[in-house]
């Protein structure tokens, strides 16, 4: 059995009261395998940050279950056990109004068991973090780096990064990816990151989950998802317009284009058997898959509204 670093079941979080209630997370089932680099993807207000805050015990679920490293982060004393083993970079990098050096010293004192001075020095050097700049004079990018250095040096079993690339220039972003692969994912340790930087995620993640409106649209090993999705173009008469594997269909006078979300080979064989001609078959990038999924959910909602 695979162990999960984070697992949620029918997780719900509502904000507000009465008719103005907002369901930020709406029946979420998330499975982050231990030892994975997991990319949690979604548009603004998809519910990513709310989910992460519940995992860190900063928000209380309205209903449903959440387990982090096998413990419930909602209540003490289990929450303390969770927090001891998790490094966290929040979405707003306003951790504390401290210079990077002071922030590192503070975090060092909180995590005496796992903190690594070597790793702290390495991150500071690689990201070129100015240690003694007063907090108020730090740029957005340097605030992000400061938060990253403090969390990475904890050398924790689970590292949760909420939008960790905000304000980073391409060189710093590249160094961050290298640090994550080199120093944060070995020995069965897990990284969960939420971001919009799909191209970078596509490189370093092995698992992804795409969220929209508080739910998971798709989740699994990235390689499987990339090979399940395909854009196929056919010519021929009486092509099917719906089916379990079809995500969307576009037609013009000459050809019909299908976006398939599973078993594209089987689908192509069946249509070819029925006399259609396959004129193009192309793989889709994670970015294209993300856009297609979010668009399709939206158009479905417009129809039902």
């Amino acid at each position: 059995m695979t162990a999960f670093a984070i697992q949620t079941h029918s997780l719900v979080k509502t904000y507000g009261l009465g008719s103005k209630q907002i369901r930020a997370v709406d029946g979420l089932s998330l499975n982050v395998p231990e030892g994975s680099i997991y990319g949690l993807l979604g548009r603004n207000s998809a519910g990513k940050t709310t989910t992460i805050r519940m995992a860190m015990g900063l928000a209380r679920p309205s209903s449903g279950e959440i387990k982090v490293l096998g413990f419930n982060p909602t209540d003490d004393p289990e929450r303390v056990i969770v927090l001891r083993q998790v490094g966290y970079v929040p979405e707003d990098k306003m951790l504390a109004s401290l210079s990077p050096r002071k922030l590192l010293e503070l975090n060092r004192s909180f995590y005496p068991a796992t903190w690594s001075d070597d790793l702290a020095r390495k991150v500071v050097k690689r990201l070129e973090l100015p240690l003694d700049t007063p907090y108020l004079k730090l740029s957005l990018g340097n605030k992000t780096k400061s938060a990253l250095a403090a969390a990475i040096a904890q050398h924790s079993r689970l590292l949760i990064l909420d939008e960790p690339t905000i304000g980073l220039d391409p060189v710093a972003l590249d160094e961050l990816l290298r640090l994550l692969v080199e120093d944060c994912s070995a020995d069965g340790r897990t990284i969960l990151l939420s971001t919009h930087q799909l191209a970078e995620i596509e490189q370093i993640a092995d698992h992804i989950g795409i969220m929209d409106h508080g739910r998971i649209l798709i989740e699994g090993p990235l390689d499987d998802i990339l090979s399940n999705f395909r854009r196929l173009t056919f010519t021929g008469a009486s092509l099917p317009l719906t089916g379990p594997s079809i995500l969307s269909v576009k037609s013009d006078a000459r050809a019909t284009q299908f976006i398939l979300q599973r078993d594209p080979e089987g689908f192509a064989q069946e249509l070819t058997r029925n006399g259609a001609t396959l004129i193009d078959s192309s793989p889709m990038s994670l970015n294209e898959i993300f856009l297609e999924l979010c668009r399709t959910t939206e158009s479905k909602e417009e129809v039902s509204a």
Partner: peptide, 17 residues
């Protein structure tokens, strides 16, 4: 594997595969 993954900024499991 890990060295290659770090150099290329890709997942170590991908290199292992």
């Amino acid at each position: 594997t890990r060295r290659t993954a770090a150099d290329l900024r890709i997942n170590p499991n991908t290199v292992a595969r």
